[in-house]
Design a protein around this nucleic acid. Structure first.
Lengths: 204, 204
DNA sequence: ACATAATGAGAGTGATTGCTCACTCTCACA
DNA sequence: TGTGAGAGTGAGCAATCACTCTCATTATGT
């Protein structure tokens, strides 16, 4: 199991890097700190990654494989196609919890994409675009059935995703404030969007 | 005009720092680069700011004054209270253009807020909270008139802001793609939200 | 048990960076 | 003319950081 052993060290480094990068940012983090967090010698890092930036790319690669077609988007697409079936909403909620556990990684990638063009391109092509296409397709079906307004499908998908993202981020920032029940909040966000995109009788 | 002269240099430094910080991030930027961009000697920077971080705080202070109650939020609040009056929508669009010009500064502040607690607290207290309160208040009025659904006002405001923010960010990232007309897109985003929060007859 | 590869420990290197400090320039005022 | 305060300068310092090298130690596969 030489590969597994090797990649176990690699995995330790990547996990540590995710933690340190997300706490201090890519430039603010030091390789020695990552080594310490991973419990390996600093030199070991450079046996697995050529440069510090190589670690970031390693994180990206491991993230891309796990975020292609994430389950929450499949659940959202199903919710869109079926309407606001209760089982779908609770499924979305479950998957949202999974996303929140990966929030440091997601924020790290989205934020660092600003400064590293290759990161931005890969995220756009391998994560953002597929997700948008998946949702747009489901939205398109409902549009064809005259059940959704004839707005731009991409735009509708974007308002859905950013509403959810905005809720997640706000929940994290304003954690001290009195907030309504999580499930109720999620239902409200989804209901606002679903009602917002519903077709009027005289539309189109 | 000794004060004006002094603060003119200070303003040059701050403007340069906004540019360099937003391109490379706070940690990725160097004071010598900021000095070069500002057209002053590196030593001059430290006559006006104690430390590199002091520059960031200087940026924050100047941003807070210009983003308290930004005009776009006043326009949005008016739109909420009046419904989707056409003059309001076009006003929102104008103000959105202003926001887009300040996008590097805004993204910089949001990014660095992750790593600098004081920055996060000031943004939250001086910018985010006032804006949310303003919108929540306008939303509350319509709720009282039974014209809006009796959802959480804060949550409704968040879905509105994040939909708009999501549209702005997406427009910037996917600039190469064929996109619909800007004004039409904005109208669609606002219409989705407005219809989404409208009360049903049997609500509440 | 042996050969091979991986790792830990840690000193070392060259480049870079935030910041300092001695000095100059300007200008108001005595 | 002399003086002192304040703004600006840029060479230079001490510290840090990404990355390398060496060597002893451990783990693996046969």
């Amino acid at each position: 199991m030489e590969i597994a052993e090797a990649s176990s060290t690699q995995k330790k480094i990547i996990d540590a890097a995710i933690k340190v990068f997300s706490e201090k940012g890519f430039e603010g983090a030091t390789t020695s700190e990552i080594a310490q967090e991973a419990g390996v010698a600093e030199g070991t890092i450079f046996r697995h990654f050529d440069t510090k930036k190589g670690i970031l790319q390693g994180i990206l690669i491991s993230a891309v494989t796990s975020f292609q077609r994430p389950q929450i988007m499949v659940s959202l697409a199903r919710m869109i196609e079926k309407g606001e079936d209760h089982s779908c909403v609770s499924m979305v909620k479950e998957q949202l919890d999974v996303i929140e556990q990966q929030l440091p990684l997601l924020k790290l990638l989205f934020y660092e994409a600003q400064f590293h063009t290759e990161v931005q391109e890969i995220i756009l092509e391998k994560i953002a675009r597929p997700i948008l296409d998946l949702l747009s397709q489901s939205i398109g079906k409902r549009k064809n059935m005259r059940e959704f307004r004839c707005f731009d499908s991409n735009l509708m998908a974007i308002t859905l995703i950013s509403s959810l993202w905005g809720y997640v981020i706000w929940k994290q920032i304003a954690s001290e404030e009195e907030t309504i029940d999580e499930e109720e909040a999620l239902i409200q966000v989804l209901h606002i969007w679903l009602k917002g995109v519903q077709a009027n009788l005289h539309d189109c």
